[in-house]
Design a binder for these strands. Structure first.
Lengths: 116, 116
DNA sequence: GTATTACTTAGACAGTCTTCTAACCAAGGT
DNA sequence: ACCTTGGTTAGAAGACTGTCTAAGTAATAC
């Protein structure tokens, strides 16, 4: 009755997500479920040297500095980026491990939905 | 100056996300950035036959039927699932193409952050 | 020290989201 | 025809979010 796909380890398909896992993953997803934060993450990750100064980030948006700071804090709290002050400026970089968690949620699911 | 990774096509790393892309992806992410909707998607996707009846889904939560219906609508509007009535019951199934879009956002990023 | 620039924190306000109850449509069984 | 079960729609209440202004801290320049 229950046919199983050969492909390995689909997180969402393998079995119903536990309530706790769902809460954890949803919190992580919520951190990136915003256009500004997505672009911030993208700008930091794609910046040369793997890090970007807050001053560069702020200039790229039609938003005030406190708003950008708020979004950076959300990303930081979620463990997606880490910031460090060096002299006058604060530099942020992506934490790949956390992005990997995001990446792992859906990746195997796309083409391995169970068949009857 | 700008070292580039050999790995192909990292969506968020390749270059800064356009404003429009960010808005689109954020809308998709927002649809799954909720514990209940994540579990719903997981339950539908992992259910035998690749589809699940709303009645099964509703019973699995301590939430009222209208609330589940609302969450299903959000997933449906985002293009992540599709529903069909067959006789008495309504069955939902995952739309793999849309899940693939989600999967494509972060997958290559995890271990390909630019180096200096 | 004072001023200036870079960034964060605190508080307020408008908009959005999650949930509920109540009411409605759809299909089947008597 | 009626009732029951399954599911959606409509509207409302409370919590949460994104944005701002105002005020605070940190580091450099004079």
């Amino acid at each position: 009755m229950t046919a199983v796909t050969i492909q390995c380890c689909p997180p969402l398909i393998r079995g119903p997500l536990s309530e706790q896992d769902a809460v954890d993953l949803a919190a992580l997803l919520k951190a990136v479920a915003d256009p500004v934060r997505l672009r911030l993450l993208s700008m930091i990750g794609s910046h040369e040297g793997g890090e970007a100064c807050v001053c560069d980030l702020t200039d790229a948006f039609d938003l005030t500095a406190p708003t950008i700071s708020h979004h950076l804090k959300v990303l930081r709290t979620a463990g997606l980026i880490d910031g460090e002050r060096r002299g006058t400026w604060v530099y942020y970089r992506v934490i790949p491990e956390t992005v990997a968690r995001l990446s792992a949620i859906f990746t195997p699911m796309a083409d391995s939905v169970r068949q009857a």
